Amino acid sequence: MIDASELANSVKHPFRNILKKRNRPQLVMAIIMPMFEILTGINSILFYAPVLFQSMGFNGNASLYSSALTGAVLCPSTLVLSRL
């Protein structure tokens, strides 16, 4: 940890470095992805997924399984999209 701290302190102008061309894809993804999640409301849909599935007619266990299946599909799709 001491070595990592010394290495971090040795970087000159860290905020200026993050704006360099080689760091732009990471910077754009760090800003765009959370903004897109907030604007689309996907987090609230996923949070209320069991209630939504239950209101669509699924029983208690099926609504939880449907919610788990949705999360299980989102995880690999995120990994596939992150490789693009």
Rank of each mutant, 00 (worst) to 15 (best):
A4F: 07
S5T: 09
E6C: 08
A8D: 15
S10Q: 07
S10C: 04
S10P: 04
K12D: 15
K12N: 14
H13V: 04
P14Q: 03
P14Y: 01
I18Q: 08
K21T: 05
K21A: 07
K21I: 03
K21H: 03
R22T: 06
N23W: 13
R24A: 05
R24I: 09
P25Y: 06
P25D: 04
L27A: 03
V28G: 02
V28Q: 05
M29V: 08
I31A: 02
P34N: 03
P34T: 02
F36G: 06
F36L: 15
F36W: 12
E37M: 10
I38E: 13
L39A: 08
T40S: 05
G41I: 02
I42T: 14
N43C: 05
N43V: 10
I45K: 01
L46H: 04
Y48M: 08
Y48S: 07
Y48I: 04
A49C: 01
A49T: 01
P50A: 03
P50M: 01
L52S: 12
F53P: 02
Q54I: 00
G57I: 02
G57A: 06
G60N: 15
G60I: 10
Y65T: 13
S66L: 09
S66W: 08
S67H: 00
A68C: 05
A68L: 10
L69H: 07
G71I: 05
A72L: 09
V73G: 09
S77C: 12
T78K: 12
L79R: 06
V80W: 12
L81H: 04
L81M: 10
L81Q: 04
R83Y: 13
